Each structure stands twice: as structure tokens, then as C-alpha cells.
Simulated scan of single mutants.
Amino acid sequence: MEPENLTAPSKFILLGLSKENDIQPLIFGLFLFIYLVCIVGNLLIILAIGSDSHLWTPMYFFLCNLSFTDICFISTIVPKMLVNIQAQNKSITYEGCLTQMYFFMFFSGLDSLLLTVMAYDRFAAICHPLRYVTIMNPCLCGLLLLLSWLICVTYSLLQTLMFLRVSFCKKIEIPHYFCELALILKLACSDTHANDVLLYCVTGLLGIIPLSGILFSYSKIINSIVGISSERGKYKAFSTCGSHLSVVSLFYGTGLGVYLTSQTSYTSREGSVASVMYTVIAPMLNPFIYSLRNRDLKQALQRLFPSMGDRSQCNNRRIDA
């Protein structure tokens, strides 16, 4: 390979989820609907928590930040995808791809760390209820959030700077709907060994280690719940953790599934569909999971929108009748 052919391209080509032009309007409408639902749903969570002083607790503080992160996470990917479909132009500039990669890595990592911190919060609340207020004090909550941001800023910046040294041969066609670092590195013409090592180290740091922490926390939580004599107490403890476990399963199940099978599925349609689950579907479903399984949050939403509460009470009266 001649040195002059190894350059930073002016643009990449995002092939998207399908090459069929007939289904592009369907994909556009579906993703626009999902995006709007995600934005509205997560904004409602933030507004409900911010407007109700009863929810100014560590659990809802981190949930509010998770909703903000999900809004930013999906906004990193979907708007560009919708613009490309509408304009019938699959290109993205080198700078735009670099920016998308940076924020994708940042917000996906922040999602992972916030879910881990929320698992620790539930562990403290259920396993050490008498010391919960002391353990999860405002200073510690702020420190955990700040540390999560610093870790994600550092590793995303490091990954982006390392990517600048990678060279490509010609016009690069990416068989995906966004600029995913692991996939693009496979299309490079220069040596990417250092980038690959860093990528797998970061995947372990922000994927495997947080997931291990979550599983350890919930193993302790389950042991504590089993020891509760009251059936009502057990139900309340399980319902408190159920929504968080659902979100963890959805995010890590699909996310790690994509990364661990990247050698075989990243260039196939199955890999793109799996990526849709944790990049688009998970941020959209999170508000529904938390609001449907959380009585305090449902009450806060009803106070935020009194008409919702009136309809709910009316429905309850009909059922009672």
C-alpha cells in the first residue's frame, strides 16, 4: 500500500439499516416516532422529579440524570439518520463522524455508570436501611455523578484522539446507521492494534466491571429480601428494584451482545438490528418502565398533569363499581 493512499477521508457513507428504497419512508416514520416518544417520555420524568419535592432523593436524582443521558444518547444518533433518509444522502463528514463517535461513547458509558450507581443506591437502601441517609448523602451523590462524568469525558477523548492516527484507503462505506468505532476500525488500512486494545479495555472498564458490580449488588439485595418475614415488605422491595433490573437487562443484554459478537455480526443486518435495541429502543422504554412500575413517580406525574389523575381516579371508581 502506497503511503499517499493512506489519508483521512473527507466523508464516510452510512449504509443504514436497509438498502431497499421502498422501505426508507417506513424506517423514517418509525424512528421519528420512537425519537419523539423518547424525548417526551424522558422530559416528563425530569419534570415530574423536579416539580415534586417528595422525589428529591438519591434514587430519583440518579434517575433524573439517567433520563437526561438517554435524551442526549438517542439525539447523538437518530437525528442524523433521519436527515440522511429525508435528503436521500447517506454521507457524513469525517468531522461529523468523529463528533458522533465521541458523544456516542460518552453517553453510552455514562448510561452504564449511572445504572451501576443506581444499583449501589438500591443496595444501600435495602441492605442498610438504617444507615441509608448517612451513606447516600448529597455529597456522595454529587461526587459519584461527577466521577462518572470525568471517567466518560476522559475515555471518550482518549478514544477520539487515538482514532485521529488511523488512516483509510478510499471512500469508506459503513454497513451501519451511525459511526460505530469498533466497526470503522475494521475498515481502516493502517495498523489499529493500539486502538483495538484500548477499545477492549474500555469495554471491560465500562461494560463488564459495572455489570459485575450490579450483579453483586443485586445478589446481596436478594439475600436481604429473602430474609424479610413480611410478604408485603418483600413485594415492596422487589417492586422497588424491578424497574431498575428491567432497564439493566435491556441495556446490557443487547449492548454486550453486540460487542461480544462483533467479529461475526457487525457487518450483517442482525448486528444493526441488535444495535437498535440498546441505542434507540432502550432509551425510549426507560420512562415507561420506571413510570409504570413506580407508584411515587406515577403520583408525581398525576400532580404534574391533574387531568391524568382525574381520569385515573374515574377509571378506579368504574372498576370499584
Results as ranks from 00 to 15, higher is better:
residue 4 E to L: 11
residue 8 A to Q: 14
residue 14 L to Y: 04
residue 18 S to A: 10
residue 18 S to N: 09
residue 23 I to Q: 11
residue 27 I to R: 09
residue 30 L to P: 01
residue 37 V to T: 07
residue 46 I to W: 01
residue 56 W to P: 02
residue 56 W to T: 05
residue 59 M to F: 05
residue 61 F to P: 03
residue 61 F to Y: 14
residue 64 C to E: 04
residue 64 C to A: 09
residue 64 C to M: 13
residue 66 L to C: 02
residue 67 S to P: 06
residue 68 F to L: 04
residue 69 T to S: 04
residue 69 T to Y: 01
residue 74 I to W: 03
residue 80 K to R: 13
residue 83 V to T: 08
residue 84 N to R: 15
residue 91 S to A: 14
residue 93 T to W: 13
residue 95 E to T: 14
residue 96 G to R: 08
residue 97 C to D: 11
residue 102 Y to M: 13
residue 102 Y to P: 07
residue 106 F to V: 01
residue 112 S to W: 04
residue 113 L to V: 06
residue 114 L to V: 03
residue 114 L to I: 15
residue 115 L to P: 12
residue 119 A to Y: 01
residue 125 A to M: 12
residue 125 A to C: 08
residue 131 R to K: 13
residue 133 V to C: 10
residue 137 N to C: 09
residue 146 L to M: 12
residue 150 L to H: 06
residue 161 L to H: 07
residue 170 K to C: 13
residue 170 K to Q: 15
residue 171 K to N: 13
residue 175 P to C: 04
residue 176 H to D: 12
residue 179 C to S: 14
residue 180 E to P: 02
residue 185 L to Q: 09
residue 199 L to Q: 08
residue 201 C to G: 07
residue 212 S to Y: 02
residue 220 K to A: 10
residue 220 K to F: 11
residue 229 S to A: 14
residue 243 S to N: 09
residue 247 V to Q: 03
residue 247 V to I: 11
residue 253 G to L: 06
residue 258 V to A: 13
residue 259 Y to L: 14
residue 259 Y to C: 11
residue 261 T to N: 12
residue 263 Q to N: 13
residue 265 S to I: 11
residue 274 A to F: 05
residue 277 M to G: 13
residue 287 P to A: 03
residue 299 Q to C: 05
residue 300 A to T: 04
residue 302 Q to C: 11
residue 303 R to W: 05
residue 305 F to M: 08
residue 306 P to G: 05
residue 306 P to N: 05
residue 309 G to H: 07
residue 314 C to E: 14
residue 318 R to W: 06
residue 318 R to K: 12
